[in-house]
Amino acid sequence: MASHAQEQILIGLCDGELDSKRYQSSYLTNKVGGQPDWFPVISRQSPRCRRCAALLTHVVQVYCPLDSSPYHRNLHLFACPGTDCSGRSESWTVLRSQGLESEMAAAQPASRDAPPQEAALLTTDWCDTADDWGMEGEDGDDGWGGGLKKESQVQEEVKAENPTGNTTDISSRLQDLSLEESQEEIPVFSPFFISVVEESDLFGEDDLKHAQELLREYEKREGVAVGELQGSGDGGGEEKYEKTRARHGDAIFSRFMKKISLCPQQILRYCHGGKPLFISEPPSNMAQLFSACSSCGGPRTFELQLMPALVSLLQRKDSNVEVEFGTVLVYTCANSCWAAGSHSAVEEFCFVQADPDQQLFK
């Protein structure tokens, strides 16, 4: 990624319900909930909770190709729906998958029906070339994304991994997949589109005035004074905290609130190679926790984080399943390593911080 774009922060916002009867999502779609849309060359993944072994629920899908890379690139975040596992890092998993355009075209069966145009128009990417947002869908309307996988697609993937044509292995894998899904149901959150804006675009005069009002309300409620927001972003002055401490005694949380007060409805922050926005004091060994890529052993870097406003969107119509957190930070391989011809997603590092004042976002 080009160094001049590393500090560019992108904000993800809820952009309406993804109605499967009207829209067909694909791996090009940024979304909350629903079923994950895997690349045609990637085997379907069903991660489990490291704490209770339950199947994890899909939370967020982000299409995030890197500017200097020829690969399509996705991140999928999963969380355990169990009450006792809520807010624990070991109960979250983030998977990175990549694929070349030529591989996609070869592995994706021809679609009989053209995908709905609305889905293409709402496709957004998170790569360095932010000027292209909203235009990617025009290129993405070429049959790459086939929506949710059908059995025929799984067969294509298995054949790619099994060029000898051993039908016994293929049938066995499909049977195991069907048995697993029939025996254990995976909760699915209602799907929503995610739209993207640059954080710097939020500093309009009217928005800044509204943010200042929210900030004053927060200062009065929490008994803490922080510096004024600057219209030029972080470069226009430093935060200054008075001796009076917030009721929860956490200056880091106060900074967090100040930073997001301009757009409290943000559900995701993206800044590949940038700095995370902690909601509470991180552990002293944080750098060691995410330092090494589990695949290549190289360094990891911060890429994105989920925000408290997302919690209220994670709902099921037929149950009371709920996942709570303050922020979920994702660190990925700095080199975005990928083995040519790979059919398995790479697990990256997730770190969850609880929200010390969750009721503010409900």
Score class of each variant (00 low, 15 high):
1 M>E: 05
2 A>L: 13
2 A>Y: 13
7 E>G: 15
8 Q>M: 09
11 I>C: 10
11 I>H: 03
13 L>P: 00
15 D>V: 03
24 Q>N: 07
26 S>I: 00
26 S>E: 01
29 T>W: 02
32 V>F: 01
33 G>F: 00
37 D>P: 03
39 F>C: 08
39 F>H: 10
40 P>A: 15
44 R>G: 11
46 S>G: 01
63 Y>M: 02
64 C>W: 12
66 L>F: 04
71 Y>G: 04
73 R>M: 04
86 S>L: 09
86 S>F: 01
87 G>N: 07
90 E>H: 03
99 G>D: 00
105 A>H: 11
105 A>R: 15
106 A>H: 10
107 A>D: 04
107 A>C: 13
110 A>N: 12
119 A>V: 01
121 L>K: 02
122 L>S: 06
128 D>M: 14
129 T>I: 03
130 A>Q: 10
134 G>A: 04
137 G>K: 01
139 D>S: 11
141 D>F: 07
147 G>F: 01
147 G>S: 10
148 L>I: 15
152 S>K: 14
153 Q>I: 10
156 E>N: 14
156 E>M: 15
161 E>N: 09
164 T>G: 05
165 G>E: 01
165 G>P: 10
166 N>P: 11
168 T>F: 11
170 I>W: 03
172 S>C: 14
173 R>L: 10
179 L>I: 12
186 I>G: 01
187 P>L: 07
189 F>L: 07
190 S>Y: 12
192 F>Q: 00
193 F>I: 01
196 V>S: 00
203 F>I: 11
203 F>S: 06
214 L>S: 07
215 L>M: 06
216 R>V: 08
217 E>C: 12
220 K>Y: 05
226 V>F: 00
229 L>N: 05
231 G>F: 06
237 G>N: 03
238 E>H: 09
244 T>V: 05
246 A>C: 10
248 H>G: 01
249 G>L: 07
252 I>R: 15
254 S>L: 00
256 F>Y: 15
259 K>Q: 09
260 I>N: 03
262 L>I: 14
266 Q>A: 14
267 I>R: 08
269 R>N: 06
269 R>Q: 13
270 Y>S: 10
274 G>C: 03
277 L>A: 04
278 F>S: 01
278 F>L: 09
279 I>K: 05
280 S>C: 08
283 P>A: 13
292 A>T: 13
293 C>S: 08
295 S>A: 13
296 C>Q: 05
298 G>R: 15
299 P>R: 12
300 R>G: 05
301 T>D: 12
303 E>I: 06
306 L>Y: 13
306 L>W: 09
308 P>R: 10
309 A>V: 02
311 V>A: 02
311 V>M: 06
314 L>I: 02
318 D>M: 02
318 D>W: 06
319 S>P: 08
323 V>C: 06
323 V>M: 08
330 V>G: 02
335 N>G: 00
335 N>S: 13
339 A>G: 11
340 A>Q: 13
346 V>P: 00
348 E>R: 12
351 F>C: 11
357 D>F: 04
358 Q>M: 06
359 Q>W: 05
361 F>I: 08
